[in-house]
Simulated scan of single mutants.
Amino acid sequence: MADDIQEQLKSYKTAPFDARFPNQNQTKNCFQNYLDFHRCTKALTAKGADTTRCEWFRRVYKSICPMSWVSKWNDQLEEGTFPGKI
């Protein structure tokens, strides 16, 4: 399974189509992948497992989210004021 993930990451260019977000506006897709990355990282770190699987979510949100949003969300996470549930 890890080899399969590594192959997907190597061939990654931009966020693929996600049927959960069929509209042109990708704001929800951006936010959901940001949340998924942090939830995945938190869960796997708590288990002591390798977080390489979470890399997919990070690459997706970095390719579709404005960096100003990501920067603001990271600041909010550090301050403990992030509105999402991680």
Score class of each variant (00 low, 15 high):
F37R: 02
N25F: 06
Q8E: 10
A19F: 05
K13G: 06
C30Y: 03
K10Y: 05
E55P: 04
Q32P: 06
M1H: 10
R20L: 00
K47L: 07
Q24P: 00
N33L: 02
T45K: 02
A49F: 06
C54P: 09
E7G: 04
Y34E: 03
R39D: 11
M1C: 09
D50A: 04
L9C: 11
K13P: 01
L9N: 11
K13V: 14
E55C: 13
P22W: 08
K28L: 12
D50L: 01
D3I: 08
L44Y: 13
L35C: 07
P16G: 06
F17A: 06
H38D: 05
K47H: 07
D4Q: 05
K42H: 11
G48M: 03
I5V: 15
F17N: 05
T51Y: 01
C40F: 00
C40Q: 05
A19L: 12
T51W: 01
D3Q: 13
L9G: 01
R39Q: 10
K28A: 14
Q6R: 09
A46H: 06
D18F: 09
T45Q: 08
D50N: 04
K47T: 00
L35V: 15
Q8T: 01
R20P: 00
A15E: 02
F37A: 00
K28G: 10
A49K: 13
N23V: 14
K28M: 15
D18H: 04
D36G: 08
R39S: 13
Q26Y: 02
A19S: 15
N33T: 10
E55H: 08
T14V: 08
I5G: 00
T45M: 02
L35K: 12
L44S: 04
P16E: 03
T51S: 03
S11M: 09
D18I: 02
T51P: 05
N33C: 03
S11R: 14
E7Q: 14
R53M: 13
